[in-house]
Design a protein around this nucleic acid. Structure first.
Lengths: 126, 126
DNA sequence: TACGCAGGTTTCCCTAAGTATACCGGTATA
DNA sequence: TATACCGGTATACTTAGGGAAACCTGCGTA
């Protein structure tokens, strides 16, 4: 059972419950990767280039080492960021957005555009 | 202090911490509206046209009336769905996606595309 | 010798999100 | 008279996400 992208566009067509669920999975994946309190901030901070652990932490006020460590691991698992370890003293660890990580750009751009328009509409409406 | 969409594209430029935060707000808004366990399912189910409360509930296995009610209210507040009440016996209530709700389409499409590609990459890699 | 830094981990705690179950008023149906 | 449906609320509970603080190893510095 394959769900084609076109199905998203032509939702006049009634989908079966299973097709329906299949369609939601990729959406859920994408949302899971971007949501959470610190993910976007970390991604943004890495857009400026490689950074060390403490550098990221200093760049994001309020983040605890526990959360930073956890989120970086998730980014790594998803191949969005890469971890480099150098055998200096003390040890140096750097993180970098991967090329694949850059592929999030259109998604983030669409979210930003919609979110910005929505702010104007809803908040401006107050 | 205004953040332009172009800034998103040209992240070579170093942003100040405040610009940085301003940039995250619309992203957070958009994500908040789409995340949560049932939002997408409700939006999808309404794409097929107007539906009554119980119809939506039957279409989404596992959702409790409490959650459905709560999520529909949020959609209404954000002007993504509209609630129609008819004075029949028993009362009839229908929900419909607004035209504005349709404006989410490009966002959802981008999320879907990226999520689907990501599934192939990460799960296929397993 | 003691302190400090890098790069984290561990533990405990609190709150927000979501689940389960029961219930409500009004109406129709057997 | 009892039961069921509609469109929800109310209450109590469990779980997931995140915060705060302490701690760890290894090394350099005063």
């Amino acid at each position: 059972m394959e769900v084609k992208e076109q199905d998203l566009e032509n939702l006049q067509v009634q989908l079966s419950p299973e097709e329906y669920v299949q369609m939601l999975l990729p959406l859920k994946d994408a949302l899971d990767i971007l949501s959470g309190k610190w993910k976007l901030q970390i991604i943004f901070s890495l857009k400026f280039g490689r950074k060390r652990f403490k550098e990221i932490q200093r760049a994001i006020p309020g983040i605890s080492p526990k959360m930073l460590s956890k989120e970086l691991k998730e980014l790594e698992i998803n191949e969005l960021a890469q971890r480099f370890v150098y055998d200096t003293k003390p040890i140096t660890v750097e993180y970098e957005l991967t090329d694949y990580g850059q592929s999030l750009k259109p998604v983030v751009t669409e979210l930003y555009k919609w979110g910005a328009a929505h702010r104007k509409r809803i908040i401006g409406r107050g």
